[in-house]
Nucleic acid binder design. Structure first.
Lengths: 258, 258
DNA sequence: GTTTTTATGATTGACTCCAATCATATAAAG
DNA sequence: CTTTATATGATTGGAGTCAATCATAAAAAC
């Protein structure tokens, strides 16, 4: 039984929109929502797939537009077990009702995941990482703030003058930062404006922690963030013996082992 | 042929991680990536699904964590055609190399989608909406900035003192705002801090536009944003005749019809 | 008003996916 | 070293999905 062309187009529009709102919908559910048979839904999906408006899977469909910070999430995560251990060690440090800054990076993302799964009461969390904000935003009892700034999409982070300016409004109990490497000389990163930002975070924090796994040992990039005399803690899965073996001389109590 | 328990656990961890990095993977691809048979992959997926670490679908799997601003995206979108027309009308207004502010709301999200599909060269875009930042972040040639502030996850927006502060750093060629309703008296919204913020945006914009579809006619909420004497443009699919019929007296050239 | 076009749901046979079962081989336990 | 447990891949039969086909009914065109 033929229906009017404009009804068909409206139905297909609504179908595409439904799939934009859900990550995946099985065919039977699409039939229910649209009030059509499987055969009709299949034909609609075939047309929309051909127009690249949806993505077809076996038994269902999803939208074509990938609304996640895909370049961040596709990044190869190395040493996930070590990062998880560091994240758990950090979790043990954080007290209820405290204010923490979370930097960008896969170790901090692992920390966000632990904070999501094991919430700590009354936390105020400040970050410039959009995936971390996205991860922790739904957790009841958390007040999540973003610093703002220019969006660097590939790294899923916000930087620039605005971020530095809004940073000045904050005072953190703890700050948890990432870096690219650590050597006998200190902690290294590869972008000067990231370092500027991180130093600014240091200044505004009662306790500043750099979270690095053992794979970052002996990695030196272009810019020295801090040397070992500076006032910060290192949270790492590398043992004190291993650190000493690599010529890293830390102060008493500076290293927190994960 | 039995393999060690720790190999099984490592493989399952890697499987969960793979699915965190991709929205969906078919079973055959998971087999390829993990180097196991379908039967083994199915058993692994069954275990991970039971532990709520992944979501199983017919023919494949995806991660459990829903990494989109789901409360925003699940919101019922009404009058999508009208919103699309308004979005296209706005697109026609925007000149290359200009600086625009995009507010929160489903009409502005439709605008973001048009700006994604039909990019305008050299735009600087400022927003406090995370889905809009996420949508436009990947577009080459766009500089996307977020204002920062406290994350209101359900509305997927940033508000508060920080947002107002960082707003002061900007001057917009155009600002495109949403609202809850319009009557003979003016434009209405339902939250005072949203109105404070929007008025601050008005002040910093050469041209301020409110984008409302006809469904918002005769809708009055708690707070008046602006009356019709104020200096702003209305971009709407409601005809001038319909506006006049509802007792809305606009200034010459104030209404841009979509 | 008549003819043509086409969208629909039902049906069908082919294809894909699935869990259960089994034999085998290795890890784990004693 | 022996015995037990269990992870694996292959196989199987059942379940689910799929596109093609068809009859029907209404929209569209004339």
């Amino acid at each position: 039984m033929k229906v009017a062309v404009k009804y068909v187009q409206a139905r297909r529009s609504r179908l595409a929109q439904l799939l934009q709102q859900h990550r995946f919908l099985p065919l039977t559910e699409l039939c229910d929502k649209l009030g059509v048979s499987e055969a009709t839904a299949r034909r609609d999906l075939a047309v929309l797939a051909q127009e690249h408006k949806i993505t077809r899977t076996y038994g269902g469909a999803m939208s074509s537009f990938d609304q996640t910070f895909s370049s961040f999430r596709e990044r190869q995560v190395r040493a996930p077990e070590a990062k998880k251990r560091i994240a758990l060690a950090v979790h043990d440090l954080i007290k209820p009702n405290s204010t923490c800054f979370l930097d960008v990076g896969t170790t901090l993302f692992a920390l966000a995941d632990v904070l999501r799964q094991k919430p700590i009461r009354g936390l105020t969390l400040v970050t410039n990482s959009l995936p971390i904000a996205e991860m922790l935003g739904p957790v009841r009892g958390y007040a999540v703030h973003l610093l703002g700034g220019q969006l660097f999409y590939r790294q899923s982070l916000l930087l620039g003058g605005v971020a530095l300016q809004t940073l000045k409004l904050w005072k953190f109990d703890h700050a948890f930062l990432g870096a690219e490497g650590m050597t006998a000389e200190g902690i290294w990163n590869s972008q000067p404006d990231v370092i500027d930002f991180q130093l600014a975070v240091f200044k505004r924090s009662t306790q500043s922690c750099v979270c690095l796994d053992a794979q970052k040992l002996d990695t030196q990039t272009d810019y020295l963030l801090v040397d070992w005399k500076a006032n910060f803690s290192l949270i790492t899965d590398a043992t004190p013996a291993l650190l000493e073996k690599r010529g890293i001389q830390t102060k008493k109590g500076q290293v927190i082992s994960a």
